[in-house]
Amino acid sequence: MINALFAARPERWDTYEPTLRAAFEAEGLAVDLRQDFAPEEVDYIIYAPNSDLQDFRPYTRCKAVLNLWAGVEKITTNETLTQPLCRMVDPGLTQSMIEWVTGHVLRYHLDIDRSLALQNSWSPYIPPLAEERPITILGLGALGQACATALTQLGFPVSGWSRTAKSVAGVTCHHGPEGLNAALAEAQIVILLLPDTPHTQNILNSQSLARLPKGARIINPGRGPLIDDEALLAALETGQIAHATLDVFRIEPLPEDHPYWAHPKVTVTPHIAAETRPITASRVIAENIRLGEAGEDFVHLVDRNRGY
């Protein structure tokens, strides 16, 4: 029998317990799934970083910590965590991110806000075709690549940037510090899908925002610290940036007195771009437990040195 500890907020148990059990059964795994075990009895920890479990030292038998969230920045710095850590790459989450990003890209591309504002007047606006609207995605991990591919299928010319070299069919890929300028130079819409690491914080700052074409739009469903908030507000005031749609923030919920709430050129959404879906996420968890029991490599293993 495999002992799996569910270490997330108690209210999540009723949601995940049936889907996890179904996924374990589908993989042919005999798993004792509980919310409480003696630490020395635990083989795997199914984990959410906002749970009460923050000290991993007693879990001496634990083979892996399997994160329920895509983001791991809240756990990678935990010095008590010595077990392998796997991040969540959930097909359901990926699909929801594709849909959210595509929706907001099309809102900008078609200038839907203008159409709504002028719906009682006959003032036609003919948008350019997608092929005339260059888009750049900062971050070419699983989510970035999926969104890039979806947008290329709609006809947008898509460039991508990552810290290390990547290759994505139909996407012009840049990497490293020297590639960032090229990725931003012609981008009318910039989408941020980078992890939060010391290397990516404030990647959109006064200098990088100035490299964009005047009137560019920003979409951030990635991580709040990717943007220097003061620099973005200043760029919005000058018109260098025409509008920003922000789903993530340095402090969440976004404080009531934050200038983003009332800014006419900012759309705030409450961290809804992509949510882990219990059914598909449970299958990812079950797959990793199967791999661990077979002595095979875990999927989506976190590189602690890179932070993701």
Rank of each mutant, 00 (worst) to 15 (best):
Arg277Ser: 07
Asn205Ala: 10
Gln35Ala: 05
Thr94Gly: 01
Arg114Trp: 07
Glu293Ala: 06
Asp111Gln: 14
Phe24Val: 01
Val248Pro: 07
Gly92Ile: 02
Arg211Leu: 15
Met88Thr: 06
Ser282Val: 03
Asn202Arg: 12
Leu301Lys: 05
Glu293Asn: 03
Asn50Gln: 13
Ala142Lys: 02
His263Ile: 02
Glu275Asp: 12
Ala26Cys: 06
Pro127Leu: 06
Leu138Gly: 05
Arg114Tyr: 05
Arg9Glu: 08
Asp32His: 06
Gly222Asp: 09
Ile126Ala: 13
Ser96Ala: 12
Gln119Ala: 02
Leu204Gly: 05
Asn220Trp: 05
Asp90Glu: 00
Ala48Ser: 15
Ile126Ser: 13
Gly176Leu: 14
Leu291Ile: 14
Leu212Ile: 10
Phe156Glu: 01
Arg12Asp: 11
Ser115Phe: 15
Ile191Asp: 04
Thr94His: 03
Met88Cys: 11
Ala38Leu: 07
Trp100Pro: 04
Pro84Met: 14
Thr77Tyr: 02
Val65Cys: 00
Gln145Leu: 10
Arg107Val: 15
Lys63Met: 12
Arg277Gln: 13
Leu106Trp: 06
Leu116Glu: 12
Leu246Pro: 05
Arg57His: 13
Val266Asp: 10
Ile218Tyr: 13
His263Asp: 07
Glu41Met: 00
Met97Ala: 04
Cys173Arg: 13
Arg211Ala: 13
Leu143Trp: 10
Tyr59His: 07
Asp36Leu: 06
Arg12Ser: 07
Ile126Asp: 11
Tyr125Pro: 06
Glu40Cys: 05
Ala187Trp: 11
Val31Gln: 12
Pro195Gln: 02
Thr80Pro: 08
